[in-house]
Amino acid sequence: MDVHDHPTTAERDPGAALFVRGLVKTFGSFTAVAGIDVDVPRGQVFGFLGPNGSGKTTTIRMLTGSIAPTAGEAFVLGEDVIRHPERVRARIGYMSQKFSLFEDLTVAENLRFYAQIHGLGRDEFAERRAWILHMAGLQGREDELARNLSVGWRQRLSLGTATIHSPELIFLDEPTSGVDPVARRQFWELLYELAEQGITLFVTTHYMDEATHCNRLAFVYGGKLIAQGTPTELRDSFGPGATLEDVFVGLEEQSRLRGDDR
C-alpha cells in the first residue's frame, strides 16, 4: 500500500512486465511526472488512475519510449526502454484515446498497414486479421472506411490495430473516454479476454467503475503516485463500506491539503 515498500534496483525481477523507479519528466519549469515507482507483474490488468493533467499520458509516453524521461529508470518486459526503446516496440502495443485510425482507409487497410509496419508474414496476418475481426465484431465490414464506423466499433478496431502483432504488454491510454456505457462494458470484456491469454494490460482511466475491473491500481495526483494496491486493499484501508470513488476522492483531498498539486 505504501509507495516506498518496493524492492530496490538490485531486486528487480527480470520477468516483470514493468519495473519503474524514480521516473521524472519536466517540460521547462513544469513538472509533469514527479518521481514515480511502479511494479507490474506479468499477466495483470493494472489500472493507472488520476484526474486529467495528473501525468498519466506523459508516463505512458515515457514507458513506450516515445519521449525520454528527465530522470529515473524504466524496464519494460525486462528491457531498458530508455536506452533501447526499439527493443521493446515489437513486443508492446499502444492504444490512445484518439484511437489512431486512418479515417480514409478501410477496416482491412488499417489492419494491413499496421501489420506491415510490424513485419507480419502473410499467414500470420491472415490469422490475426480473422481473430481481430471476430473479436471486434467487424466481420463483413472490412471494406468500410474507418471514418464511417461508430465510436464503439472504432474503439474495438483501434484495440485490434494495437494488438495485431500479438504484444505481450498493451498500454491503453483512456481507451474508453467518450464511449457509451454499453460499449465500455463490451470493451472491458475484450480486455479480460486478452488478460486471459496472459497479456499484461496497463490501463489509464478516470472512470472509477472501471477501476474495479483491475487486479491492481495506482493513483496519481500532481505527477506523484499517492497510493498503490489491489482494489480490496485500497477500499479496506479507507474503512468499511468505502467505495473506490471514496478512496480516490479522499486521497485527492489529502494530497491537496499536503500541497502535492503543482
Binding site: 516515445s66 516496440r89 508492446i92 499502444y94 490512445s96 484518439k98 489512431s100 509496419i117
Partner: peptide
C-alpha cells in the same frame, strides 16, 4: 491530429 503519428512512434517504424 489523428493520433496515428504517436501510434507510429511506438511501432517498429523508424
Amino acid at each position: 491530429e489523428l493520433g496515428t503519428a504517436e501510434q507510429l512512434t511506438v511501432s517498429p517504424l523508424r
